[in-house]
Design a binder for these strands. Structure first.
Length: 295
DNA sequence: AGTAGAACCTGAGCGC
DNA sequence: TGCGCTCAGGTTCTAC
C-alpha cells in the first residue's frame, strides 16, 4: 500500500489522535519486524508526550517532548489504525472490525490525550517488511540522510528534474524509483506519472535532458505530472479518512482512478488514443504503460 | 554503470 | 476442498 501519498494520509489520520497525547505504554507483541525493534523500545517511549507527526518520503517521524524521535516505515503491507479505548468489542456489531484485535497487530501504542481520552494506535503488518527506529536527529539517520527531493510543493520542477537525470542511462522508470533522486515515488505512481507525461518508462533517463543539462519540454512535463499525480493521490486518500485510519487502504483508495497501473490489456484512457495498456517487467517489477502514446 | 535475481514475509487469486 | 503456482504498494544485498 504505502507510497508517499499513503504515508502522508496515514500521518494526517494519526496526527489528531497522537499530537499532544502521552504514551502510557507500548505493547510490542511481535518485535521481529524487518529490523528488530530497539531493545528498550517500550521503556523509552512510556511517559513521553507526542509533539508532532512528520513525514520524509515514505517515512513517518514521531517527535516527543523529550528523547529521540520514532521513525516508522510501513514496508509493503504496514498500516496504522486508531481505536478509542471506549470502543467495546461487541460480537457482530457494526464496528466489529475496527476494535477487533486482528492478526498481525505487532505494536500497540496506548495513549492518553490532553483531555484525558484514551486510545490505541495499532501497527499491523502481515509481511513484516516495515520497521521502526529511534533517532535523536531522524533526518540525519543513515536511512533518511541520502533521500532525494520531495515530489510535493514546487521544488520538483523541470530544471531540478533535469539536473537529477542528466547523463543517466538507466531506464526512466528505474530513475524515478530511485529514492536518492526523488524520495517517495513507488511502483504505482511512477507508472501513473509517466503515463500523464506521455513518456515511455523504457527510454533512458538522460534522454529528457538537453545536452547542456537544461530541461526539455519533456522534463517540464514529467516534473508537473509527478507533482500532480502525488497531489491528486493525497487528496483522494485524505477524502477517505476522517475519524480513523483505515487498516488496509481499500476504502476510497486512489486505485479507483489509476489510468494504467494494473490495467494490462485495457484501452488507454487518454482521449483519442487507440492504444492498449501493456505490462512489462523492469528490474523485477511490473511497469504498466501505453506504447501508443508514451514515447 | 547497469541490471538481474534473490532475500526478507504472508496472503490473495487462479488453474487444476 | 486443496494443492501449487504467481503475484503484491519496499528496500537491500550479491552477482554478472
Amino acid at each position: 500500500m504505502p507510497e508517499l501519498p499513503e504515508v502522508e494520509t496515514v500521518r494526517r489520520g494519526l496526527a489528531p489522535a497522537m499530537e499532544g497525547a502521552m504514551v502510557d505504554a507500548v505493547d510490542a507483541k511481535r518485535p521481529d519486524l524487518r529490523f528488530p525493534l530497539p531493545l528498550d523500545f517500550t521503556k523509552q517511549l512510556a511517559g513521553r508526550t507526542v509533539t508532532q507527526l512528520g513525514r520524509r518520503a515514505k517515512y513517518l517521524i514521531i517527535d516527543f517532548d523529550q528523547g529521540p524521535s520514532l521513525i516508522c516505515h510501513l514496508g509493503m503491507s504496514g498500516s496504522f489504525r486508531v481505536e478509542a479505548d471506549g470502543d467495546q468489542q461487541t460480537p457482530g456489531s457494526f464496528h466489529h472490525e475496527r476494535s477487533k484485535a486482528a492478526a498481525h497487530d505487532h505494536v500497540i501504542f496506548h495513549l492518553t490525550s490532553a483531555d484525558g481520552a484514551r486510545s490505541r494506535i495499532v501497527y499491523n503488518d502481515p509481511r513484516r517488511f516495515g520497521f521502526m527506529l529511534m533517532a535523536d536527529r531522524p533526518l540525519e539517520h543513515p536511512m533518511l540522510a541520502e533521500l532525494g527531493i520531495e515530489p510535493v510543493g514546487n521544488s520538483l520542477n523541470g530544471p531540478a528534474l533535469a539536473s537529477l537525470l542528466k547523463g543517466k542511462k538507466t531506464p526512466l522508470k528505474a530513475a524515478l524509483l530511485d529514492q536518492t533522486l526523488i524520495a517517495g515515488l513507488g511502483n504505482i505512481y511512477v507508472s501513473e506519472a509517466l503515463w500523464r507525461a506521455g513518456l515511455s518508462p523504457r527510454r533512458s533517463a538522460g534522454s529528457i535532458v538537453h545536452a547542456g543539462g537544461t530541461a526539455t519540454h519533456r522534463a517540464e512535463a514529467l516534473a508537473a505530472a509527478i507533482r500532480a499525480v502525488i497531489a491528486d493521490a493525497i487528496l483522494a486518500g485524505g477524502s477517505s479518512l476522517r475519524d480513523y485510519v483505515h487498516a488496509d487502504g481499500s476504502l476510497g483508495y486512489f486505485q479507483h482512478s489509476f489510468a494504467v497501473y494494473d490495467r494490462e490489456g485495457e484501452a488507454c484512457p487518454k482521449p483519442g488514443c487507440a492504444g492498449h495498456v501493456k505490462r512489462i517487467v523492469q528490474s523485477g517489477r511490473s511497469t504498466f504503460y501505453c506504447p501508443a502514446c508514451q514515447r
